[in-house]
Design a binder for these strands. Structure first.
Lengths: 238, 238
DNA sequence: CACACAATATTTGTATACAAAGTCATGTCG
DNA sequence: CGACATGACTTTGTATACAAATATTGTGTG
C-alpha cells in the first residue's frame, strides 16, 4: 500500500521546483541532489522504496546516474540497501543521536592527529574561516544559517584533511555528512548559536596552533557534544 | 610510465587463476571480488589507475558491473576517487595504523551500546561462535586462519548488529572491512594468536551478558588494540 | 629549441535495449 | 475452501552504443 502511494507521489507531480535542481547540468549530480533533497524534505518518507525508474523521471535523468546516486545516498546513510532494493532510512532521534556519539569519537580523534600534522597554511585557513563566520549578519535568517552551514563544513573538513590520512577523510566524510544535513534541516533552525559555536571553534584552533593533541581532542569532543540534539521533540519523524 | 605498465599488466595476462573468481557467476560480484583481490595481492599496485575497460576484461564482465564494484572498493577505502578517475589506495603503515585507532573508538562504542540492547539469542549466537573458534585445529595452517577470519568477522558483526542502529552498522562496515582484509593478508600470517584472541572474546561476551556498558567498551578497545600492528616492518608497501 | 595549438586517441559519462529475477494475482485442482 | 502452480507484470541487473571530457601526440611557428 504505502509503496504504491510513494510511487504515485513521485510520478504525479513535478518536484523540480521543490528540489531546486533546475540548474544542475550533470545528470549524476542532478540525480544525487534530487534524491537527497527529496529524502530530507520528506517527499520520500522513511521506508519508501527507491525505484530507479521513478527517480529517473523525478530528477529528469536516466537510470544510470540514478543508480550511482543511490550508491552515494546509501553510503551516506540516507538510505539502506536490502537485497537488490533500496529504502529511505529512518532518522529517528535514536539514530541521529548515535551518529553524533560516533562523530564525537571520530572527529575528536581527528583533531588529535591533526594537532600533530597540521601545516601553518591550514592554520591560516582556519583563522580565515573563523573571521568569515564572525562576519555573518542577520543571524536567524535562512541565508545566514545556510552560510554558517557552509563555513562550518569547511572548518571541520579542513581539520580532517590536516590528519594527512586518506582513510580518515573517507570515513569521516560518511559519518559527518548525515548529521550535518539533518542538523541544518531540523535542529539549527531552532537552536543554532553561531557566536557560541565560533567561540568553541576558536578554542580548537588555539589548541591546534599549540600542537596540543590532548587539548585539541577534548575541545573538539566538547564542541560536537554541544551541537548534539538532546530532546526527541525537535526531531522530525522519530 | 607506471600507468602504461599497469595497463599492460592487466591486459597481457589472464589472472583468472590468481584471482580465484572462476566460479563466481554474478558479474557484479565477479568484478568486485576480482578487483579487491587484485589490489590485495599487489597485482594492482598502490597508485595504479583503475581503468574501467581494462578491469572489465580482467574480470570477464562489462563496464557496468565494474563501475559498481569500483564504488564499493572506493567506499571501503581500497581505492580513492580523484576527479573522474580512481586509483589504488596506499596501505602504508601509517594509514593502516590510523584505521585501527578509528576502529578502537568505533567498535568499543558499539560494544557499549550493544551491552544495553543485545538480546538473549544474540548472546547465544556469540557463545556458539566462541565454541566454533575453540574447535579450530591445525593452527597456523592457511585453512585455520581463513576459518578464524570468518568466525572473527561474525563475532564482531553480531555485536555491531546488537546496537540496533542501522547507521552504526553502515559506518562500522566501512571502518572494519579494510583492516580485516589487510590483517588477514599481511599481519595474521605472522602474529595471530587464536587462543589469545578468543580469551578476549570471552571477556567481551561476559561483559555483554552482565549488561555492563563500561566493561564491554573497555574490553573491546583492549581486544582491537591487541590486534593492531605496531611494527612498520610487517607491513607490505609502507 | 621551446611553446602554442590542433588533431587524435583514450577514458569516463549517459542513455537505452534487453535479460534475469522476483512479485503478485488469478485460476485450477485436491 | 485452501494450497499451489502458472503466467503476466514489475523491478533490478547487464551489456553496449554513443556522447562528452580529458590526455596525448604531432606539427608548425616564433
Amino acid at each position: 500500500m504505502s509503496l504504491n502511494e510513494t510511487n504515485s507521489a513521485i510520478q504525479d507531480a513535478d518536484f523540480a521546483d521543490d528540489l531546486n535542481i533546475g540548474d544542475i547540468e550533470r545528470p549524476a549530480e542532478r540525480a544525487y541532489q534530487g534524491i537527497r533533497r527529496a529524502i530530507l524534505k520528506g517527499i520520500l518518507p522513511s521506508g519508501a522504496h527507491l525505484r530507479e525508474e521513478a527517480l529517473a523521471q523525478m530528477t529528469g535523468t536516466s537510470r544510470t546516474p540514478v543508480r550511482e546516486a543511490l550508491r552515494r545516498v546509501v553510503a551516506e546513510g540516507l538510505a539502506r540497501a536490502d537485497n537488490r532494493h533500496r529504502y529511505v532510512s529512518d532518522f529517528s532521534f535514536k539514530e541521529v543521536s548515535i551518529v553524533f556519539d560516533i562523530r564525537i569519537r571520530l572527529e575528536s580523534f581527528a583533531a588529535r592527529v591533526a594537532a600533530e600534522n597540521i601545516t601553518d597554511s591550514e592554520l591560516a585557513e582556519l583563522d580565515h574561516i573563523l573571521a568569515e563566520i564572525d562576519r555573518i549578519e542577520n543571524v536567524g535568517q535562512p541565508a545566514a544559517t545556510e552560510r554558517f552551514a557552509e563555513l562550518n563544513s569547511r572548518f571541520h573538513n579542513t581539520i580532517i584533511k590536516a590528519t594527512r590520512s586518506m582513510q580518515m577523510q573517507t570515513l569521516s566524510a560518511q559519518a559527518v555528512s548525515l548529521p550535518l544535513e539533518v542538523i541544518k534541516q531540523f535542529v539549527w533552525e531552532q537552536t543554532v548559536n553561531i557566536a557560541q559555536s565560533n567561540d568553541q571553534h576558536r578554542v580548537i584552533v588555539t589548541a591546534l596552533k599549540q600542537r596540543n593533541p590532548d587539548w585539541a581532542e577534548n575541545a573538539m569532543a566538547g564542541h560536537i557534544l554541544s551541537t548534539k540534539p538532546h530532546r526527541p521533540s525537535i526531531m522530525p519523524r522519530g
